[in-house]
């Protein structure tokens, strides 16, 4: 099973930081995501993309997680040589993770 089957995500950018939300379709899956989608697992999964620290914020108020990834955008939206300079498509990179 992939994260895609359980949850949706939107990527945002601030400088060289990518923010990736992780929102379960069913709020009952929030605890499962908290247990299984750890910072270490996300770091390993995104190793080719994110070279900095990753912080995970738990938001039980809306049953969602937020991953804030440093050094994730090849220097940032304005100066990156990447096709997707904002990293807008990285939400679907996170959702590729196997559970």
């Amino acid at each position: 099973m992939k994260l895609y089957d359980l949850a949706h995500s939107r990527a945002g950018d601030k400088g060289n930081i990518s923010t990736l939300s992780l929102i379960p379709y069913d709020e009952n899956d929030y605890e499962k995501l908290c247990l299984e989608v750890t910072v270490d697992k996300v770091k390993t999964h995104l190793k080719d993309i994110v070279s900095g620290e990753i912080v995970r914020y738990e938001m039980p108020n809306i049953a969602s997680l937020l991953f804030v990834c440093q050094n994730a955008l090849m220097s940032g939206v304005t100066t990156s040589l990447a096709v997707d300079t904002h990293g807008k498509a990285l939400s679907y990179a996170l959702l590729e993770m196997e559970l």
């Binding site: 949706h8 939107r10 923010t19 929102i23 914020y57 938001m59 969602s64 937020l66």
Partner: peptide, 24 residues
């Protein structure tokens, strides 16, 4: 929910010139 978390780098402290908001 997708929009609430969009481009937020710290949901405990969302900085603006008017206030530091808490989204949690």
């Amino acid at each position: 929910k997708e929009q609430l978390l969009y481009e937020v780098i710290n949901p405990n402290e969302y900085f603006t010139p008017d206030v530091i908001a808490d989204f949690t």
